[in-house]
Amino acid sequence: MDTDTQPAAPDALDWRGDARRTVTSLYEAHAVGLIRLGVVMLGDRAAAEDVVQEAFCGLYRRWKHLSSPGHAVPYLRSSVMNGCRSALRRRNRSAGRRPGAELETAESAESWAVLGEEHRDVLAALLRLPDRQREALVLRYYLELAEAEIAEAMGISAGTVKSTTSRALAALGRLLEESR
């Protein structure tokens, strides 16, 4: 489990008083974990860093609307997931919506080039899933979040998380079978 994305530091601080200092300390504690999440989702380190940077800027701009410091990390995680979804859509649009464009993207993903073929196949298959299914699998099997946390991050009910995860896993298995 990647503990870098778990809530921590801000409770101890006068969190509402100095937004810049608190957001910066949150960045120091969680940026790497969130960039890793972005790399898993996008396969592109630079794009992942951009998404994470934008998520922290968004948190800073909305800081006074945050009801409690404990919501900061779930907010960041949701922002990163949304940012990755948008980045993937932009990438697919620029690839001209060709069939298999996601696969080409995965194969050319800079950050995944150093990985073995087995891992690249799995990540490429993951990219071919619909947005919701991909996100549910990453939150469940990479971050190992509980259903309630996944539901909060994705803005859906816990029941929907369960069914989406199950369907996504079956679809991923089929894609991996096809690619053999």
Binding site: R45, L137, V138, Y141
Partner: peptide
């Protein structure tokens, strides 16, 4: 499939 997914995502995350 779950194990393969866990290993692949952790390997990708390990690049950071």
């Amino acid at each position: 499939t779950e194990d393969r997914l866990r290993e692949a995502t952790r390997a990708a995350a390990g690049t950071v």
